[in-house]
Design a protein around this nucleic acid. Structure first.
Lengths: 346, 346
DNA sequence: TGGGGCATCGAAAACGTTTTCGTGTTAAAA
DNA sequence: TTTTAACACGAAAACGTTTTCGATGCCCCA
């Protein structure tokens, strides 16, 4: 077991100074052809690689970017990570991830751990608890210390930074319009509580679509799920709530769900209630994940191009990192949604 | 925008030496109560945090572990990451991920990027291409440099390191035995080519189960899929192959698939062929993912406890990192599988 | 012969820590 | 009064780089 070789060791072996070795390896013309060859040969033989940590300390940049997301076992987030990793790697950056697990405290702790020199900038999606408490001091502080942040998907207006979002409002509007065009007269929405910004916006899109089509919104067709039911352990409760919605409102012929789980559960309940999909009930979900494609019937969804989001976020961040001199200017990039038609709609 | 404050700045402001500041902050009793208070107050006021990079350089350890996986948009791998992150964080470590994208070159490059001081050890799952080429020099080299590796799931005997695997053989054997117990007489297997170790082992488990139950293996019931068809773009080809299997062998009344996708596709094809599940055809899949739970009918699976694997791998690695003095000793931890019964079996 | 200029190299600082060792001061012991 | 020991602090090295600035030696030309 031999430790990694350093400049100092090479210098000692070849009986030259450390500076000479360093310069020789970087092909400085200060060094004679002879010594250059000698040093490079030796370095190659011993497979010398500069120590990243030392370089980070010297350059005051680590060439790694920190990702903070609420959850990684999630198709959307893992796709975003893949996108980030793709462009990050291409541009010579590494990626270090922290999970907030939807908790405010873990979000703060994770950010503090990484902000102490480990990374050059953040790409993050805000945890639900943080959104609920509306406490954003940790974002302000890191930004204040000169560390750029790019937020994606779950963002917040109060914080001044680059953002990458999907056009939730327009996306859900398009989805509901699709249902209307398909002949639905009574469209229900299954959404989250309003403090989740994406839920709120999607609800708003639903309402706007109805309004613009002269359809009266009916409060009993709007089901706002408390997030506790999102967990796998509470599937039955979720089913019960949706079942109640469908049973109490037999006229419902279209369902727009703000995520995959809600949509699939709705289809499951509908099947139990002997409602034919899409003949009697059409369903569209937001978030195009694996489930949608492989469901029976397969689910029509609003795709939010998660990987694109990741790529864009990484580009924004790295651009900012590599042009520090630029004046302050924050961009909010909107990723267009796209309706992917499958079997759950006519 | 104020940069993060350093010991040197504190020292200058308070007109003491850097060493004094450092000691005061670490509550050294070398420092008088007075100065200690003064320094700590000042540090708190300016929210001083030691620079991680400097600490890493000094201590020659980074307190971060590198993960290399073939793919992150994958329920199994993201669950493993979550497990790793959980115990890593609890023990004060960060996690940095690299994706090999099933490519040998990217695996090597990623490992080289991280091995130059950025991390203390690796947790990885080998890419398919590496398994195919059987070129493991990058593993040997990093181990040789004193950097420990823990492999999980896709491991290889040739490399001497800690491993965490699921008992693929026993797991698939249990699954097939379950099918036999449920009355299946002609059980097909949908598996991968043999160079994927997990595929090979699961096939072996299938064969052993048949043998021990005095059932003759029939080569026409063994379908080995080339990995190119795994991609989302080749779903039709995959379906075609499976359809051929089922059409050519009408007697098949049980299917064991080595992953979720194969199992779900089998069910889809069966439905098209008007085969009732589970009455006429029972299906069990390996890998318990989201798809299984939400499929219709929901899929009976062999769960491999991905999160447990991650946790165990992280524990093995960190233990090794924190007891460097120990003599060489490598452990292969086997995670027990568990059959989760759902609707696709009787 | 003296000096200018070039080619080649080394010393040292810097990045931000921790830690060892030394030093000066003061109070207690002899 | 002198010696000793405790106390409080600072200097410096070390981790592994890169880079600036000198320093040497040599050749060439006046």
């Amino acid at each position: 077991m031999k430790r990694k070789i350093t400049l100092k060791q090479i210098a000692r072996e070849l009986d030259v100074s450390i500076s000479t070795v360093s310069k020789a390896l970087r092909n400085s013309k200060e060094i004679s052809e002879d010594t250059r060859q000698k040093v490079q040969a030796f370095a190659k033989l011993y497979n010398y690689r500069p120590n990243n940590i030392a370089l980070s300390l010297k350059n005051r940049k680590t060439k790694t970017i920190g990702i903070i997301i609420p959850e990684i076992v999630h198709h959307f987030f893992s796709k975003v990570i893949r996108g980030i990793e793709l462009v990050a790697n291409k541009r010579g950056y590494n990626v270090i991830v922290g999970l907030s697990n939807e908790s405010f405290d873990k979000e703060v702790i994770n950010m503090e751990m990484l902000a102490n020199g480990s990374i050059d900038g953040f790409i993050l999606s805000i945890s639900k608890e943080t959104l609920l408490q509306q406490d954003y001091h940790h974002f302000y502080e890191t930004i204040n210390q000169g560390m750029p942040i790019v937020m994606f998907d779950r963002v917040v207006n109060e914080v001044n930074c680059d953002k990458v979002i999907v056009d939730d409002l327009k996306g859900s509007k398009k989805a509901v319009e699709q249902l209307i065009a398909n002949g639905c007269k009574n469209i229900a929405i299954i959404t989250t509580k309003d403090y989740v910004s994406v839920g709120r916006l999607r609800t708003q899109g639903y309402l706007e679509a109805l309004e613009e089509n002269k359809m009266e919104p009916q409060s009993e067709l709007i089901l706002k799920i408390v997030e506790e039911l999102d967990s796998e352990d509470h599937l039955e409760d979720l089913e019960a709530e949706i079942e109640q919605l469908l049973v109490n409102n037999k006229k419902i012929d279209g369902v727009f769900a703000v995520n995959e789980l809600y949509a699939l559960t709705a289809m499951k309940v509908a099947r139990r209630l002997k409602k034919k999909i899409p003949e009697q009930l059409q369903v569209i979900g937001f978030t195009d994940g694996v489930l949608s494609k492989h469901a029976t019937p397969s689910l029509t969804t609003v795709s939010q191009h998660a990987e694109e989001m990741g790529k864009k976020a990484a580009e924004l961040l790295i651009n900012k990192l590599e042009n520090e001199d630029e004046e302050e200017y924050f961009e909010t990039h909107i990723i267009e949604t796209e309706i992917i038609k499958r079997e759950s709609t006519k």
